[in-house]
């Protein structure tokens, strides 16, 4: 749409409005919405909005962590006794898998900043793969709990009869917290697929890659939740 200099000079004299149109085009790149002054301000707004959303998520998960803290305070021995039924190896592997997926996600954002479209797609595919590995391992763990009758409800069984009711509270919290976390992973996987499609359609450039950065923040947040869940659920009373 850019007019050649010679042409622009002529239109300047003939029509002042034409000049303002040219100026607007120069001031407002395709990526910049008109209600923002600068790309910096536009990015800042997106970042702030995303962080506020993530902080509401922190409060959301915080309620569950609060419930966990209260019941662990009430029944410390029962909670410690459950850790022998948690698969620390699988939990530890999953922690490493999530940390690796955070690295690949950070690298996807890094590639977006450099405008390397193929690298974005590659790193997003890796992140998606690692996310699926995490969910697969989670499925194996849930299946173990199912086989061991460690799912709270009428079929719950517990080796130590003293803690029959109290251990059920921990397993309820285990499924609620890891389940909610897994739900966030599934949503994240969907969002990554959307990003891959956008990247394949060349929607991102070094000037505009906001969705990659935003979904990246979300993915890292989900990683942080797991960083706290792993020691709290798997490693309590691990010494016994």
């Amino acid at each position: 749409m850019a007019l050649r200099p010679a042409q622009r000079k002529r239109t300047d004299k003939e029509d002042p409005l034409a000049e303002s149109e040219v100026t607007l085009e120069a001031l407002h790149p395709r990526e910049l919405r008109h209600h923002f002054d600068t790309p910096e301000q536009q990015l800042e707004s997106s970042l702030l909005g995303m962080w506020i959303f993530l902080l509401t998520e922190v409060m959301f998960f915080g309620g569950m962590f609060g419930g966990y803290t209260v019941y662990r305070n009430l029944y410390p021995d029962a909670f410690a006794s459950t850790s022998q039924y948690m698969n620390v190896t699988l939990g530890g592997i999953n922690t490493a898998v999530l940390i690796c997926s955070s690295l690949t996600m950070a690298m996807a954002v890094h590639s977006a900043q450099l405008g390397k479209n193929r690298a974005i797609i590659l790193f997003l595919l890796l992140t998606l793969f690692l996310g699926c590995v995490f969910l697969g391992i989670k499925y194996v763990e849930y299946h173990e709990k199912w086989v061991d009758h460690h799912i709270p409800g009428p079929h719950f069984q517990y080796a130590d009869a003293r803690y029959f009711h109290q251990a059920q509270i921990l397993f309820f919290l285990y499924f609620a917290m890891t389940g909610l976390h897994a739900l966030h992973m599934i949503v994240g996987a969907g969002l990554i697929i959307a990003l891959i499609i956008m990247a394949a359609r060349h929607r991102f450039s070094a000037e505009w890659y906001t969705p990659v950065e935003m979904i990246g923040l979300y993915w890292h947040f989900v990683d942080i939740i797991w960083i706290f869940l792993f020691p709290l659920l798997y490693l309590i009373g691990h010494t016994k």
Binding site: A106, G216, H220, I227
Partner: peptide
């Protein structure tokens, strides 16, 4: 410490 690293560098 891990969460701080993620927030500071990855985020």
């Amino acid at each position: 410490a891990k969460a701080t690293l993620v927030v500071m560098f990855f985020m």
